[in-house]
Design a protein around this nucleic acid. Structure first.
Lengths: 341, 341
DNA sequence: ATGAAAGCGCTAACAG
DNA sequence: CTGTTAGCGCTTTCAT
């Protein structure tokens, strides 16, 4: 904490005035002689004074700090969200206490504990892959700490949330596959308990239904992880007697791995097998062929979540609300062109 | 801050003992009756007590929090470092206050100000691209706040630092280009004042010298940004009457853009023009051809920087020291194979 | 083994 | 316009 930092007391002593006057002057309150104020400010900068936010927080019962927990910052989608959060937070003079659950429930619990102990004014959380129980979040609410969930949200808790229209995004993707001639469309899903994966599956089914295609259970394969393991899943698909001619993937990393495997097996993308991802990682535009994907406005999601939270902290809109941002199907090289009609 | 949180006073009242006893029990100090301790702990969990770290920090003059400033978390290299930092910090029960300078000097200054005001126990900083003056960091040192710089470091300040052997990495890369037959090797550099870019240039020159190749000023082109602008720079190179047959790039994003432009111009990679990047972003293994690059142990850098800082905070090794981690040349498809001898 | 009291740096009545 | 005082929740002597 840097020993021997300057305090308002030091300033008061030097100027032979009371600490309350210094405090008032520092905060630019009215009712303080312009002369005095000037002297205080000068002395402060001369002594290299920096206000002690810790002391202030204790006194005013507010830390001007928000806590955030993401599963994994190394994933671009999340770092982009973090960046958006940080942007909004710094605009309104809030600090960001950063934690990472590593997709681990116990770690999420620990993170939450220290964040609460640090008396953050509010929490921004994207649930870990393992998290199923909401008890820890309910406890947060019981302590009256504002909470906003984003991306990895849950229906089992009533709080503000930010997500994208997963179902609609998936629907657009699968519909496009059908429209470009695919008939046996697979879904490379995430873990079975992951809400976003399931919602995207809903969109997948809906598109098939609308297009009059009978779903085939064999064409749905789950990956245990969002980053690895997609290779095996793809292998399974390609081992089918009736192979897929299109693959919709739960996210871009999975799609990228699927692409590799599909190519290794000698299939042409998109002619033999079309592929669509979800997220639009920066990578996706650079691979070859470039990945068609459902783009999520990640930075925007971060900003939106942060705004929601800060509004809540400042006491506006008490009711919790869910903001659903739109996705956009970005057409690239892993899908065929639409036929002219 | 969540009104009405439980305090040790509440526990003391309920148990009809003094708050000091509660405090002692909570911290598991000796000299406290096992019975009493048990009662305190039970009551604490029953009341859902969470220690107030703010109050504790004020009292013990230590926040158990480290501040970190990176130029841009959306860059994988930095998010990976942040992840490493967070990992080490949480192991030793430190919190991480996260800031982003957006490559902007003024923002870096503001970040520093709030971090100091928040009384972080130490600082982990990677300088913004614009930062040339070290006065703000010297001020940090005058306040006795431990400071460790990483990646974007400066020679103008005496403090602990973590970096990679930029010069050696560049040397290995350029030497490899020569060894595989390149003779007109270009350097796609970063901004002129960026230390890492210049150190990599030193390695570039050294390799040419060792290999007996005369440097050509025209083959060195600077990009203003580390993310955009590399396209134009590459255009310049390809407009030369004597075109390069190899391009060493200051980092992977630049290399990726260079690849695109080179391909657009109809050149074959690596046959006509070989390319090597620096960093080894996850993307680089996925593009086609996959990018040969100088890998930096980013996660390791974060862990190393955090350890250095925490050691310093805890009062070990007062002397500042620089840890230089090794890079590794990862051979992929944008370079030719070595000829058998 | 426990309690009483002081104080970390600051803000916020209250009084003048 | 300014000073005095109390107190945020906690740790830490100093007594007992």
């Amino acid at each position: 904490m840097g020993k021997g930092q300057v305090t308002i007391r030091d300033i008061a002593l030097k100027l032979n005035i009371s600490i309350s006057t210094v405090s008032r002057a520092m905060r630019g309150m009215a009712d303080v002689n312009p002369e005095t104020k000037k002297k205080v400010l000068e002395m402060a900068s001369q002594l290299n004074y920096e206000p002690n936010l810790i002391a202030q927080s204790l006194r005013i019962n507010r830390t001007n700090t928000i806590g955030i927990i993401v599963p994994d910052v190394e994933v671009h989608f999340f770092s982009s969200i973090v960046s958006g959060i940080q942007e909004v937070a710094s605009e309104v003079n809030y600090n960001v206490l950063f934690c990472q659950s590593n997709e681990n429930y116990q770690t999420e619990l620990n993170n939450l504990k220290t964040l609460i102990a640090s008396r953050v004014d509010g929490l921004l959380i994207s649930l870990s892959r393992e998290t199923e129980d909401m008890e820890h979040l309910l406890r947060v609410q019981r302590k009256n700490i504002p909470l906003v969930l984003f991306d990895r949200i849950s229906d089992d808790i009533d709080t503000s949330k930010v997500n994208v229209s997963d179902m609609d995004g998936a629907f657009k993707a699968v519909k496009y596959l059908v429209d470009t001639g695919c008939r046996r469309i697979a879904y490379l899903a995430g873990p079975k308990n992951l809400a976003i994966s399931n919602k995207r599956m809903d969109g997948y089914f809906k598109a098939l239904r609308v297009c009059g295609i009978t779903p085939d259970e064999n064409l749905i394969v789950h990956c245990n992880s969002l980053r690895d393991d997609a290779g095996n899943a793809t292998d399974k698909l390609l081992a089918l007697k009736e192979k897929p001619d299109g693959i919709f993937c739960v996210n871009d990393p999975v799609a990228l791995q699927a692409m590799q495997v599909v190519k290794q097996h000698g299939f042409k993308i998109p002619e033999d097998i079309s592929i669509i991802g979800f997220t639009d990682d920066p990578v996706s535009a650079l691979v070859e062929p470039a990945l068609t994907t459902v783009a999520q406005p990640s930075h925007e999601m971060g900003k939106c979540a942060a705004k929601l939270l800060i509004d809540q902290i400042k006491g506006y809109n008490g009711a919790s609300r869910t903001v659903t941002l739109d996705t956009k199907l970005v057409l690239r090289g892993t899908t065929r062109a639409l036929r002219e009609t």
